[in-house]
Amino acid sequence: MHNYERVVLKLSGEALAGEQGYGIDPNVIQSIAAQLKEVAKLGTEIAIVVGAGNIWRGMAGSSQGMDRATADYMGMLATVMNALALQDSLEEIEVESRVQTSIEMRQVAEPYIRRKAIRHLEKKRVVIFAAGTGNPYFTTDTTAALRAAEIEADVILMAKNNVDGVYDADPAENENAVKYRELSYFDVLKDGLGVMDSTASSLCMDNNIPVLVFSISKEGNIKRAVQGEDIGTVVRGNGS
């Protein structure tokens, strides 16, 4: 077992919605904040990328005839709402944090500046990256891969709220589905395993960033993930 020193935690919007499936569940966000406090106590530098699926899905909007770029920008704004809610929960329990957005909105958050983000991390502040990459057509998975490369994170922790790793079939539909302990990015792309989208997978593969897919539903799993416990599926390497 080993401690990762600098991590990017990818939180889906759905993870923040909890059982209700929509919006922000205060109990869930408080639980995540408490878990992050435990991780911060280890001395781990934590950056977070938040999704927006609990509020708005750009792909859903564009499939109903909305301009894709407009739908994606709306999704980016929704991630800012999630980021501010998470920051509030962290500050409530005295964990210092900063929100940095890819779309400038200085009244509510700092603009994303790589060197400033790294400085915050070095000062042990939790940094929450919001508004995706600032560009339409890119997902928050791609944001996580991009930011992890930029800040030289050791790993991306891909927190899922309904599954505890990567399986060869949907475990909700197939009770014989087998969980992978380790996969290569090549396998993920070749078999379309849906860990993250292909742009994000390629970015991680090219920059040699491992991803740990694990369940956030179990209390204390973020700390276990940071400590390198065997709790999910690790994706790494190119399989060549």
Rank of each mutant, 00 (worst) to 15 (best):
Q87F: 06
S89L: 04
S89M: 14
E92G: 01
I93N: 00
S97I: 02
S97G: 01
R98V: 12
R98H: 05
S102M: 09
S102W: 02
M105C: 12
M105Y: 13
V108E: 10
V108Y: 14
V108W: 11
E110D: 14
P111K: 07
Y112M: 11
Y112L: 11
Y112E: 03
K116L: 13
R119D: 14
L121G: 04
R125G: 03
R125T: 00
V127W: 02
F129E: 02
F129G: 03
F129T: 02
A130G: 14
A130K: 01
P136Q: 12
Y137R: 13
F138C: 10
F138K: 01
F138Y: 14
T140R: 01
D141G: 03
T142H: 12
A145G: 06
R147F: 08
R147E: 02
A149M: 15
E150H: 10
E150K: 05
E152Q: 15
A153N: 02
D154Q: 05
V155C: 06
I156C: 06
L157H: 08
L157V: 10
N161E: 12
G165F: 06
V166T: 01
Y167M: 11
D168M: 09
E173I: 04
E173G: 00
E173Y: 08
N176I: 00
V178D: 02
V178N: 10
E182P: 05
V188W: 05
L189F: 07
D191P: 00
L193T: 03
G194N: 07
M196E: 10
M196Q: 07
T199V: 15
A200H: 08
A200F: 06
S201D: 12
M205R: 09
D206C: 03
I209Q: 00
I209A: 01
L212P: 03
L212E: 09
S215T: 11
K218P: 00
K218Q: 09
E219S: 09
N221R: 11
R224T: 04
R224H: 11
